[in-house]
């Protein structure tokens, strides 16, 4: 099998241009469809126990499968998996594990599933769900390599998320500081008073301090 690195480099190039985690997850889901043999794919973040949040999906069929999971109280991918572990349904037409969900999935022509635990992001488990219209798509020997490629893709996503997190932290600090200064000057306040003022307005108007600061700062720029 060929080296996954050119593919991963290409993915990284795409991830670098993503603005947030959801967009990055979308790039990984599309990558899974293009390079990992899936017909449909989705990424979930497992925050609160029992609550998987869809970060991204390649198409509406994945949302339909999610709804079935809720409706039928279970199915592959509803629980968090640790990094590197996997759950799968080789053939949804003969699945003892989630019979109700699998029968419904087979009815949608989804015949095999593999769920991979990717590296956790911000301390929360992440899973990649892969769906195929053919049975046993993710069971063959060569697929182990693809599984490793998926893990690498998950690591890249985490890297990019951390960078964005850092950048956002920098921007937030600058915005809040600048807004503080503007408020200090306009209302003759000390920096502490200005911060208290921002917090109060933020609470009253239900706008995050960061967003309020951005509004103040952009309004202060002469045009």
């Amino acid at each position: 099998m060929s080296s996954p690195w050119p593919d991963l480099e290409d993915l990284f190039g795409r991830l670098e241009r993503c603005e947030d985690l959801a967009e990055g997850a979308g790039a990984v889901a599309r990558f899974a469809r293009e390079r990992l043999g899936a017909d449909h794919a989705g990424l979930s973040l497992h925050g609160e126990p029992g609550a998987a949040t869809r970060l991204a999906l390649t198409d509406p069929l994945v949302a339909e499968l999610d709804e079935l999971r809720l409706l039928l109280h279970g199915g592959p991918g509803s629980r968090p998996l640790t990094e590197g572990s996997a759950a799968s349904v080789a053939d949804t037409r003969h699945d003892p594990l989630w019979p109700a969900w699998s029968t419904a999935a087979a009815g949608l022509d989804v015949l095999s599933v593999r769920v991979l635990g990717l590296p956790a992001i911000r301390g929360h488990a992440v899973t990649l769900d892969l769906y195929s219209h053919r049975p046993r798509t993710f069971e063959h020997d060569g697929w182990a390599d693809l599984g490793r490629t998926a893990l690498q893709a998950g690591r890249l996503l985490r890297q990019v998320d951390r960078v964005q997190n850092l950048r956002e932290a920098l921007t937030t600090r600058a915005l809040i500081g600048q807004a503080q200064g503007i408020v200090m000057e306009r209302h003759a306040l000390t920096s502490e008073q200005a911060m208290a003022y921002l917090r109060r307005v933020s609470q009253q108007s239900q706008v995050k301090v960061r967003d309020l600061a951005e509004r103040i700062v952009s309004g202060a720029e002469p045009r």
Partner: peptide
């Protein structure tokens, strides 16, 4: 970090009526 640089930048923009 030096929050006072950001705060001063905001103040000066109002004092001198210039962009940040």
């Amino acid at each position: 970090t030096h929050p006072e640089v950001h705060q001063a930048t905001g103040m000066v923009s109002v004092q001198a009526v210039v962009s940040l």
